[in-house]
Simulated assay, not measured.
Amino acid sequence: MNKVMSNKWIIALYILPALLLVAVLIFIPLILTGYYGLMDWDGIGEMNFIGLENYISALQDGKFWDSAWHSLLLALFSTISLIIYLVISLILASKIKGASLLRKIYLIPMLLSSVAIAQLWIKVFNPTNGMLNHILMAVGIENPPAWLAEPNIVLFAIFVPILWQYAGFYILIYYAALKNIPESIIEAARIDGATPFQIAYRIKLPLIMGVVKLTIVLAVVGSLKYFDLIYVMTGGGPNGASEVMASYMYKLAFSSNDFGYGSAIGFLLLLITLLITVIVRKVTATKEEIQY
């Protein structure tokens, strides 16, 4: 077996199917997207080469930068929400009563499609008969807002179901990492007189910091390319107040039939995501990882 696996040709043969799959599904579409961004094209007819005109127009497009800012806000809120998910995971991992049931409840949003979640929260945010406004009126607020129709608050209203949708995913990751910590380490800390807060902050958190860094990258990248729930709930409205980069790209390419400009926006979205990912990795990088 060692002789076989030391043969470079055999190793290349093993990884070739995976490389072909990655090339066909990822790299070739990315290259084509960048290429289409150099064209004036409606997606069906003849393509006309216009060079970097689409990219220059995108960099001068106020709507594009507004959508980029909204995506960055979502990334920021997603990253901050990781603190809440981590706290919940620490509580669930501390052997409280009902922890098993709570883990299952938190996973429910992951099992629902984004369209179903969007329809659910549209009903919650309904200004006339929605559950949220009924609660607000019951506590004395006479004129609650139309959550999905007011430009100043629609973006933050949409962030709530997005963060709720992925809560179970991150809680599950943190919970698995916490349960992987040897119980002997926790027991030794208890014998030394450490409080639950000290155990969580000074022992558990440093031991899972590698996982925390990974979830930060996942949260940022996922937020920058987020599309489906926002498109179903508001379509980027009202008047672009909830537009993100992915939804703006979709509108240009498939609603306005400006496939070349939409492709340029999509390729810029890729470059921005890569740049921010590198920055996040640099910021969260440490020289040493704690081993146990």
Rank of each mutant, 00 (worst) to 15 (best):
V4C: 06
M5Q: 04
S6P: 00
S6R: 14
N7F: 00
K8T: 04
A12H: 10
L20Y: 08
L20E: 07
V22G: 12
V24L: 10
V24T: 04
L25G: 04
L25Q: 14
L32Y: 09
G34R: 05
G34K: 06
Y35P: 01
Y36C: 01
D42Q: 07
D42K: 07
G43E: 12
G45N: 13
F49C: 07
I50N: 09
Y55M: 06
S57T: 15
Q60D: 14
K63Y: 14
F64Y: 12
S67T: 10
A68I: 10
A75N: 03
L82R: 07
I84Q: 02
V87F: 14
I88Q: 04
K97P: 04
G98W: 09
S100I: 06
L101K: 04
R103P: 02
K104W: 00
Y106M: 01
Y106T: 11
L107V: 14
L112S: 14
S114Q: 11
W121L: 01
I122P: 01
P127A: 09
P127I: 02
H134C: 04
I135F: 11
I135A: 14
L136D: 03
A138R: 08
A149E: 09
P151G: 09
P151H: 01
N152R: 12
L155H: 13
L163P: 07
A167I: 10
F169P: 02
I173R: 02
Y175N: 05
A177L: 03
K179Y: 08
E183P: 00
S184H: 08
R190T: 12
T195W: 11
P196Y: 06
F197T: 14
I199T: 15
K204N: 08
L205H: 06
I208P: 11
V211F: 13
V212L: 11
L218V: 15
L218M: 15
G222H: 09
G222I: 00
S223H: 09
L224V: 02
K225N: 02
D228L: 01
I230N: 01
M233V: 05
T234S: 13
T234K: 13
G236P: 04
P238W: 07
P238H: 13
A241M: 02
A241E: 01
A246C: 08
M249P: 12
Y250M: 07
S256A: 13
D258R: 15
F259R: 03
G262F: 08
S263D: 00
F267R: 05
L269F: 05
L270K: 05
T273R: 03
L274S: 08
I276Q: 05
I276Y: 09
T277W: 00
I279R: 08
T284I: 02
E288K: 12
Q291M: 14
Q291S: 13
Y292F: 15
